[in-house]
């Protein structure tokens, strides 16, 4: 996750995103088996609900999962693991907490959606049950399945949105431009074949970095999501945007301006 240190925060977030998109299986995400009870169990927390879940899973032990969580939290906030706690877990798993996208995939699968930059105990317990691990060793075995290449497009969209949400700070609803550029490169360039054209990604990042418009120093969730949708709809990577009409388009103005930026660039190139 982009090279920026984050602090856990205690202020509440209004985000209520996708608790219903939790996946029961970690090894074959593309199979897309959706666990319908997940939303309800997320809300009920790690208590009795956890036990009843435990019965159904072979070898998953709620108390061991709780122990795993205990090991990464501080005493003064025993039910929340902030970035420091997540880093601890990563060290145990030999993953780089700030550079390895698998960490984000793990957090997404666990369902760390309540607040940015942290995972709650109930989220961890429910998530570990769904992924079926209660020890570091078991989790380590799952690491290969955390590759984003396993996600189908629908899952990837949700994961992509999660990346934005999780990297926010406290109650802020936007991300700094620099962080966005780092996150884009991280999420959209690792898969093979790439999710979107590499040229599109690099030109868009360049557009963001060179843009001096003050209002684009922060990027909103809508702009973030629209970029992926836009790139999937206009796949052409030689910079052509056939059929794109600003007058008709509902794309955010940021996208309009990116298209303008590209057309200007290509125009001058030709000359």
């Amino acid at each position: 996750m982009a090279s920026r240190k984050r602090k856990a925060t205690t202020t509440s977030s209004t985000n209520i995103s996708p608790s219903n998109k939790m996946w029961s299986s970690s090894s074959s995400a593309s199979a897309g088996r959706r666990k319908k009870s997940a939303a309800a169990s997320t809300v009920s927390g790690g208590g009795s609900a956890g036990r009843s879940r435990g019965a159904g899973k072979s070898g998953w032990d709620e108390s061991r999962a709780n122990e795993m969580f205990d090991a990464i939290v501080e005493e003064d906030s025993p039910d929340t693991a902030d970035m420091e706690g997540i880093s601890k877990l990563c060290t145990l798993l030999s993953l780089d907490p700030y550079e390895d996208i698998r960490v984000l995939v793990l957090l997404w699968k666990l369902g760390a959606t309540k607040k940015p930059s942290e995972i709650q105990r109930d989220e961890f317990i429910t998530g570990s049950c769904n992924m079926n691990f209660d020890s570091v060793e078991k989790l380590r075995e799952l690491i290969p399945s955390l590759d984003t290449g396993f996600l189908d497009m629908e899952e990837f969209r949700d994961f992509y949105k999660f990346c934005f949400q999780f990297n926010r700070t406290g109650t802020h609803k936007t991300l700094d431009k620099d962080l966005v550029v780092a996150l884009l490169k991280m999420t959209l360039s690792v898969d093979s074949p790439p999710r979107i054209s590499p040229t599109r990604l690099s030109t868009f990042c360049e557009f963001l970095e060179t843009n001096t418009d003050e209002s684009y120093s922060k990027i909103t969730l809508d702009q973030w999501r629209s970029f992926l949708d836009f790139s999937l709809e206009y796949k052409d990577d030689d910079g052509g945007f056939e059929g794109y009409d600003e007058g008709e388009s509902a794309w955010p103005v940021l996208i309009d301006e990116y298209v303008e930026f590209m057309e200007k660039r290509n125009g001058t190139k030709k000359k």
């Binding site: 609803k173 969730l221 509902a250 955010p252 103005v253």
Partner: peptide
């Protein structure tokens, strides 16, 4: 107008 729509989406 579009910017205002975006603001309302946000």
């Amino acid at each position: 107008i579009k910017k205002r729509i975006e603001a309302l989406i946000d």
